[in-house]
């Protein structure tokens, strides 16, 4: 099966996967074959049972540009997950995010994603022992990447709000950012809106990394991330998000969960 790949690095500047798929009819199987080979080579991949990892996403999404997705992980010390990637096969940038998990163990991740065409949505977990497990679901949606920016958009770019759960075992992170996909049109000018997104989100709990995420244009505008654990998350909770264009770092902590974002200059090496 052949499929057409059109490089569009300029659109997806800086994304891990500078590839655009431009074939509407391509069955997702071919796309997945490609992605799997790209990210995992020929490593064996199991299809885990739901008690270990589950992927929840509505097959009929209420909003293709903001489709809720939930990952749940069993807190099983024998099979701790160190990394999870989320893919939407048929999106122009299929890799939604790469999550590196720290401690305490994260048992649930919720986020909102763009789904551009009918597609398989997948989560691939990499265990500490190197084993791979995948869950997938089929989602009927289209237009999530080209949907115009929300009329409700606005606010302060980079504002971060943190909402800890009442039991201190979860944290809801909201980031004010257009997360422009590069495939949206400015209705006033008819021009393409350049890709501009949150490229990295890091959450620390009690001074240690809880979650480190590389993110791209398939995350919805005003990105949200909710993480939960079976254990209390040690304070303080500190969130840092990086802007793909300016490399600005937007931060917030539970000591000031609703303070407008503090924009810090990027460190010299671009990452800390």
């Amino acid at each position: 099966m052949s499929f057409r790949l059109i490089a569009c690095a300029s659109l997806l500047l800086g994304l891990a996967s500078p590839i655009c798929i431009a074939d509407d009819t391509q069955p997702s199987g071919a796309m997945w074959d490609f992605l799997r080979a790209k990210y995992y080579g020929d490593r064996p991949m199991g299809l885990v049972d739901e008690t270990y990892m589950s992927l929840e996403i509505p097959s009929n999404t209420p909003d293709p540009a903001a489709t809720p997705l939930t990952l749940r992980f069993a807190d099983d010390p024998a099979a701790r997950i160190k990394r999870v990637r989320v893919f939407v096969d048929n999106n122009p940038s299929p890799l939604v995010a790469t999550f590196d998990l720290g401690s305490p163990p994260v048992t649930q991740i919720d986020l909102r994603v763009r789904v551009d065409r009918f597609s398989s949505v997948r989560a691939v977990a990499e265990k500490a022992d190197g084993g791979l497990e995948m869950r997938s679901a089929w989602v009927k949606a289209s237009g999530g990447c080209s949907a115009p920016p929300s009329a409700a958009a606005g606010g302060v770019l980079g504002e971060v709000r943190l909402r800890p759960g009442e039991d201190a075992k979860s944290l809801l992170v909201s980031i004010r950012h257009p997360n422009s996909s590069g495939f949206q049109i400015d209705p006033r000018t008819g021009d393409n809106i350049p890709a501009h997104y949150i490229s990295h989100i890091r959450i620390e709990a009690g001074g240690a990394a809880l979650l480190d995420a590389e993110t791209g244009i398939s995350v919805s505008e005003n990105p949200t991330l909710r993480i939960a654990s079976d254990q209390s998350l040690p304070a303080p909770l500190v969130v840092e998000a990086v802007d793909s264009v300016t490399q600005a770092h937007f931060t917030a902590s539970t000591s000031s969960p609703r303070t407008a974002a503090t924009e810090l200059p990027a460190p010299p090496n671009g990452r800390r």
């Binding site: 009929n60 999404t61 909003d63 293709p64 540009a65 903001a66 789904v115 009918f118 009927k140 949606a141 289209s142 237009g143 999530g144 080209s146 949907a147 115009p148 920016p149 929300s150 009329a151 409700a152």
Partner: peptide, 8 residues
């Protein structure tokens, strides 16, 4: 977008 797209 009035918000979002698609036909899904």
């Amino acid at each position: 977008r009035c918000r979002r797209p698609r036909r899904r």
